[in-house]
Amino acid sequence: MGLLRYGVFVLLCITSAITYAQGSTATIKLEDYKGRPVSINHVPYKLSVVHFWATWCSPCLRELPQLVKTETKLKELGLGVIYVATDNRDDVQNYLHEQDLGINALLDQYGKAMRHYKIKVLPSSVFINADGNILETHHGPIDWEGQAMRNKLQTLLSR
C-alpha cells in the first residue's frame, strides 16, 4: 500500500504540473484550412471576435453569414473576426467553397482553442480588446444585425 500511495502522489504531481503548464500557455497556434499556421493571440484589431463554429451545427450555419456581413460593415472601425472551426478540414473546405463567404477559417483540430477559451457551446463568440484581454464570452447564437448587438459593438469599438 505504501508503493500505491507513492504512485498516487507522483500521479497527482504530474497532473498538477501539466494543468499549470496548460493554464500558463500564452499563445494559441492553429492552422487555417489551407494548412497555414496562424496565432490567434496577437491580432491587430481594436476589437476581435474569436468565433467558434462547425459545419454540422445548424445554428452556427444560420449565424455565420450575419457575422460575415457585420465584420464587413465594421472592419474599418477596427472589428476583426477569427473564425475557428471545430471541424475536420475537408468539411470546412467544402463548406467555404460552396458558400463563397470569403472568409478564412482556422481549424481547432485538437480543441486547444476551445479549452483555452472554455467553450462548451457552439456557436460561441469571445470578444477580445486590442490589449488581448477577454471582454466577454457569449455562448450560443447572436443576432449580429439586431439593434442590441449593433449598439454593443459600436460601444466596444469606440473605447
Binding site: C57, S58, P59, R115, V121, L122, G140, P141
Partner: peptide, 21 residues
C-alpha cells in the same frame, strides 16, 4: 446532429475519449 437553438457540447469529447471538459 441538429442541436436546437445552439449545440451544447458540454459532456462531449475534445480529446476523443473525454467524458467532460
Amino acid at each position: 446532429g441538429e442541436c436546437g437553438l445552439s449545440c451544447c457540447i458540454g459532456g462531449t469529447n475534445t480529446s476523443g475519449v473525454t467524458l467532460s471538459e
